[in-house]
Amino acid sequence: MTGYTRKPCEENMRKISYAQAINEAFHQVMANDDRVFQIGVGINTPWYVGNTMKGLLDSFGETRMIDTPVSENGITGISVGSALTGMRPILTFPRMDFMYYAMDQICNHAAILNYTFGGNVSIPLTIRAIINRGGEQAAQHSQALQALFMHVPGLKIVMPSNAFDAKGLLIEAVEDDNPVLYIEDRWLYDEEMEVPEEDYRVPIGQAKLVREGTDITIVSYSYMMVECQKAIVELTKQGINPELIDLRSIKPMDITTIIHSLKKTGRLLIVDGGWKTGGVAAEIAALVADEGFALLKTPVKRLTLPDLPAPSSKTLEKIYYPTHVEIIKGCQDIIHDKQNVH
């Protein structure tokens, strides 16, 4: 395992879930630093946040675990103001869709104030957002809005796909002196992995080469990494040997790791859990066009959500969310597309 700054003791590894890893990171960052407090709608009830907040209210009390009225823009501004004046808040949006209410304080204030004030302040704010895709919840409880925030200068955005990165990136985010948007996907909550007991950090802005391969590079992040792993099991049976990269951070974006992989494979499939137009995949495709066009043997292909609000009905939901099946097909199409070989 690479990419952490304080090497954890291998003996203390045990298998825990993504949600447990987040919970453990919260306990550790709050114990490590009195300036850290948590704020957000529903943070003290599992109804909103699953088991990720277990035990925190008992350990740290209501003063440091502030469950708020549904005043998203207000509490975001309050978090930014407390960060500006010396605290290190963690602000949770249990459903990412409600972040639209807080766009002003996130984009007009948190993101830009350090630059706008000439670098004379710091805003050590972690904004934690949870994607709740699927479940017949339709359009307003299921959105993945990372691309919107990626557009705004001054934010850092991380999207861990597994328990190890979930813990390490969360601790890193809280200790960062900038506003960091930490985006979880609820579909990952039960995914288990070996995770060290002690605190450790995964650096922001570094992708991870998860699997080495020769035929095609698959770049993904967050929940879609699970579907990619499933697809790879099948693809290898068919004699296709893909390389898999987990972005982990979508801003800053680690294009170097992607370019390095393309030198080997020359083919790229981007698997993105967000919408297509102006999305994360579009940004990666543009970066590859800028910096690695000559490496490409075939055109870049994007696998994303369609440009549609999420529908509720299960029949429509089934085709709305891509799975390993579409990833397999995407890889096959790229590899067998003789016409595009140059």
Partner: peptide, 11 residues
């Protein structure tokens, strides 16, 4: 205004 309230929360 909410930034100010954030300052008050710090205090």
């Amino acid at each position: 205004i909410p930034l100010g309230v954030g300052g008050a929360l710090t205090n």
